[in-house]
Design a protein around this nucleic acid. Structure first.
Length: 271
DNA sequence: AAATCTCCCTGTAGGC
DNA sequence: TGCCTACAGGGAGATT
């Protein structure tokens, strides 16, 4: 499941192959993604030059002079750089081919992702306009979370996973960060102190920046290959470890369901 | 406004 | 071995 670190790693991987290149053709084999890929994007993109790439939360952005391609990888999506000799596989839904033959290939078995065209400024696009701060940015602080959470009865885990509060904290990192901060996922967001939010923000920044570092070394196969990410093999403290002993105290980790998502926590280390 | 529920999709894991 | 079902999850949009 691509979380923010994987999207950022993907962006860095494809960036040098796309910047300054002109789009020759776009091929859409399967338009039925999270939202249908507009057939209009094919003619819109043709002849346009990619000026730079960007990212907002888990949205990957390809800028041109006229607009921006917004790509979301959903939970099974990936992008990689191939050439025209590599046959498209079953779930290779979109190719964006540059005039030098380099192809950006969008792959997404479960089709939870999307690929959209937006006018500039893309920040005003409906999907991006009301997003919260970037987790690694300076404006994401304990004080900010504390202020935003006052009066909120939602569990803290749902709160930090809300992209209107902060972007890019998916289920895995929410579980990990709450463990690191010693906070139970079911704690009401409005009942958590400023001090504990400061700790939680430190943990979120730490786990995400570490994952970007690890992703940079393991998710490197952007040219050719199968583009499969590998960094989920990194040692996780709680996610996916229900029933196993806590790495900190040995207590059996518990699992609960919150908003149709699994939460794993240590009953001793988190309160 | 805030909280909760539903839905999109298919690969994988578990049961028999 | 193979078939069947349950489950996983990001997040927008609908519903309560």
């Amino acid at each position: 499941m691509p979380e923010l670190p994987e999207v950022e790693t993907s962006r860095r991987g494809i960036d040098p192959y796309l910047c300054g290149k002109t789009v020759l053709a776009t091929r859409v084999r399967q338009p039925q993604l999270r939202w249908p890929v507009s057939s209009q994007i094919i003619e819109t993109l043709a002849g346009q030059t990619i000026t730079h790439t960007g990212r907002r939360g888990k949205y990957l952005l390809l800028y041109t002079q006229q607009g921006c391609v917004i790509i979301h990888l959903g939970m099974s999506g990936s992008v990689r750089i191939v050439d025209s000799h590599q046959a498209a596989g079953k779930h290779d839904h979109v190719d964006i081919e540059m005039s030098d033959g380099v192809i950006l290939r969008y792959h997404d078995p479960r089709r939870f992702g999307c690929l959209l065209w937006s006018e500039l400024p893309v920040e005003q696009h409906g999907l991006l306009a009301s997003l919260g701060p970037e987790p690694l940015a300076d404006d994401f602080t304990g004080a900010y979370l504390h202020k935003r959470s006052r009066g909120r009865k939602v569990p803290i885990k749902s709160f930090v996973m809300d992209s209107h509060v902060v972007v890019g904290v998916g289920n895995i990192y929410a579980n990990e960060a709450l463990f690191m901060a010693g906070i139970r996922p079911q704690t009401m967001a409005g009942a958590v102190s400023a001090k504990r939010y400061t700790r939680l923000v430190q943990c979120i920044k730490q786990v995400i920046s570490h994952a970007i570092t690890v992703g940079g070394t393991t998710l490197r196969d952007f040219v050719g290959g199968d583009g499969k990410p590998g960094y989920f093999q990194q040692s996780l403290l709680v996610y996916g470890r229900a029933g196993q002993p806590c790495k900190q105290c040995g207590t059996e980790l518990k699992e609960i369901r919150q908003s149709q998502r699994s939460s794993v926590f240590c009953p001793l280390c988190q309160d």
